[in-house]
Design a protein around this nucleic acid. Structure first.
Length: 221
DNA sequence: GACCAGGCACATC
DNA sequence: GATGTGCATGGT
C-alpha cells in the first residue's frame, strides 16, 4: 500500500490532462496496436495500422487469411516487421482457431483465463497481455511498462530490482480497482516518462518532484 | 552516427 | 534463474 499513488495521479492528471488511451477505433485494432508497439514508438505503429486499415485487414479473420510476407509488408513501418507479423498471426490464430474468429467469445473469458490464454500465445508477454486486458477487454489490470518501472524507481515507489508482478501488485494494492483509473494512470505515466524521466538520471520539471525527498541521486528535481 | 522507442523469444551460462 | 542478443524502422 502506497498512499502517494492516488495524489500522484491527481497531480499527473492536472499536469497533462486526459490522455484518451488506448488509440484505436476497435478492440481488435487495440490488440494489434499492443503487439505493434512492442519496443516501438507509437508514431511508427500508427503508420502500420493505417496500412492495415487501407488494406481492410483490421479484423481477426481477414488478418489471419493474409500470407505472412504480405502482413509483414503492411506493418513494415512499425519495425521488427517479420517478428511482429508472426506475433500478429499467433494472436489472430488464438481468436480464429479457438473462438471462431469472434472477439466477444474470447472476451467472455474471466480475467485470469483470458490472461492465461494471451500469455500462452507466441509473442504476447506480460505487458502486451495486460495492455490487451486493460484497453481492449476493459479489465482492471495495471499495465507495467518501461516508463512505469522508470517512474516508479525514480520516485522511489519501488526498488530498482522489482519484477513485473511486484510493480503491478504495488499499484493495484494502492488504488481502487477501477478500469478507467488504471487506463488513465498508465497513459499519464507514459506522458510523464516521455517528458521528464529520461533514461539519464534527471527529472527536471517533473510535476511530481515536490513529492520526492530532497536527498539522493534524483531528489529535488 | 548514436541513441531511443508503450517487449519478447531464444540461447547460453 | 539470470543475463545477453536479435529483431528493424523512423525520429531526434
Amino acid at each position: 500500500m502506497n498512499p502517494a499513488l492516488r495524489p500522484a495521479f491527481d497531480r499527473l492528471l492536472r499536469a497533462f490532462g486526459p490522455q484518451h488511451w488506448w488509440p484505436g477505433r476497435t478492440r481488435f485494432e487495440m490488440m494489434a496496436g499492443a503487439v505493434l508497439t512492442q519496443n516501438t514508438a507509437w508514431t511508427n505503429v500508427a503508420k502500420a495500422i493505417a496500412n492495415l486499415r487501407r488494406a481492410r485487414r483490421l479484423t481477426p479473420a481477414r488478418m489471419h487469411a493474409l500470407p505472412l510476407p504480405d502482413l509483414a509488408a503492411l506493418i513494415r513501418p512499425a519495425g521488427t516487421f517479420r517478428v511482429k507479423a508472426r506475433r500478429l498471426r499467433a494472436l489472430t490464430g488464438l481468436v480464429c482457431d479457438r473462438f471462431g474468429g469472434r472477439l466477444d467469445r474470447l472476451f467472455a473469458l474471466g480475467t485470469a483465463d483470458l490472461r492465461a490464454a494471451l500469455l500462452g500465445t507466441h509473442g504476447i508477454g506480460p505487458e502486451t497481455a495486460d495492455c490487451i486486458l486493460l484497453y481492449a477487454a476493459r479489465r482492471p489490470v495495471f499495465v507495467v511498462d518501461a516508463y512505469t518501472r522508470r517512474v516508479a524507481v525514480r520516485h522511489r515507489w519501488a526498488a530498482a530490482g522489482a519484477g513485473y508482478d511486484d510493480l503491478a501488485a504495488h499499484f493495484t494494492a494502492s488504488l481502487p480497482r477501477d478500469t478507467a483509473l488504471f487506463n488513465e494512470y498508465h497513459a499519464l505515466i507514459v506522458a510523464l516518462g516521455k517528458q521528464h524521466c529520461r533514461p539519464a538520471p534527471r527529472c527536471e520539471g517533473c510535476p511530481l518532484r515536490c513529492m520526492l525527498p530532497t536527498d539522493g541521486p534524483w531528489g529535488g528535481g
